[in-house]
Computed example of a mutant assay.
Amino acid sequence: MRLFPILASALMVSAPLAHAEMLPAYDSETICADVAGGSARQELIMRGCLDFQERTRKEIALAWDKLPVPVQVSCTKAAEGSGDYWRLKSCIDKEVRSTSAATGH
């Protein structure tokens, strides 16, 4: 029972001040179907696209909770029209680079 107050205290101290956004969930099937279109190699393109979207989503998911909330919010908004994990990652990379450059890191 003594563990609970210690754990609760640790969680309160480590809790971020700003509320983190949820990682957006996009419909990769639709995006990839648009990319593949009526190509003669449609199935190959579709599989490659889905694999790329999934790898990109996983890469974003690993870093999502460490991103500043303003980056999460602005990049979610920037990518919501396309619903594309690559666009979301591109935005995140750009925002992180500009933040690092501004702080000199």
Score class of each variant (00 low, 15 high):
Leu67Pro: 00
Lys94Ile: 04
Lys77His: 00
Val96Asn: 03
Gly104His: 09
Gln53Trp: 06
Ser100Lys: 12
Arg97Lys: 09
Tyr85Ser: 13
Trp86Asp: 12
Lys66Trp: 02
Gln53Gly: 08
Glu80Trp: 05
Ile45Leu: 05
Cys75Ile: 13
Arg2Cys: 00
Val13Thr: 12
Val96Arg: 01
Met12Phe: 15
Leu17Trp: 08
Arg55Leu: 11
Ala33Asn: 06
Ala10Ile: 05
Ala15Met: 04
Ala33Val: 00
Leu62Pro: 08
Glu59Asp: 07
Cys91Val: 10
Thr56Lys: 15
Ser39Glu: 04
Val35Leu: 13
Ser74Phe: 03
Gln72Met: 02
Lys94Gly: 04
His105Lys: 15
Ala18Cys: 07
Glu80Leu: 05
Arg41Ala: 03
Lys58Ala: 01
Leu3Asn: 01
Leu17Ala: 14
Leu67Ser: 10
Trp64Ser: 04
Gln42Ile: 09
Met12Val: 15
Arg47Ile: 02
Lys66Gly: 07
Val96Leu: 06
Gly38Val: 02
Arg55Asp: 03
Glu29Tyr: 04
Leu88Asn: 06
Ser98Arg: 04
Gly37Leu: 14
Gly81Cys: 14
Glu95Ile: 12
Ile31Phe: 05
Leu88Gly: 08
Ser14Tyr: 04
Ala18Ile: 00
Glu95Gln: 14
Pro70Asp: 03
Glu59His: 03
Lys77Glu: 10
Val96Gln: 07
Asp27Ile: 02
His105Gly: 01
Trp64Leu: 13
Arg2Lys: 12
Met46Ile: 02
Lys77Thr: 09
Pro16Val: 12
Ser14Thr: 14
Arg47Trp: 02
Thr56Phe: 13
Ala25Thr: 15
Ala40Leu: 12
Ile6Tyr: 04
Phe4Pro: 13
Arg47Tyr: 05
Leu17Lys: 03
Thr76Glu: 02
Ala8Gln: 07
Arg97Tyr: 04
Gln53Ile: 11
Ser39Phe: 08
Ser98Cys: 10
Ala18Ser: 11
Phe4Val: 15
Gln42Phe: 00
Tyr85Pro: 09
Arg55Thr: 14
Met46Lys: 14
Gly37Asn: 02
Thr56Cys: 01
Asp93Tyr: 11
Ala78Tyr: 14
Val35Gly: 10
Gln53Asn: 01
Ala36Thr: 08
Val13Ile: 15
His19Gly: 00
Ala8Thr: 09
Leu67Arg: 13
Ala79Asn: 14
Cys49Trp: 12
Ser9Cys: 15
Lys77Met: 08
Val13Cys: 10
Arg87His: 09
Leu7Cys: 06
Leu62Ala: 15
Ile6Asn: 06
Ala78Val: 11
Ser82Asn: 07
Lys66Thr: 13
Phe52Ile: 02
Leu3Tyr: 08
Leu50Cys: 12
Leu23Asp: 02
Ile31Arg: 07
Thr30Trp: 13
Ala102Ile: 15
Val35Pro: 00
His19Pro: 03
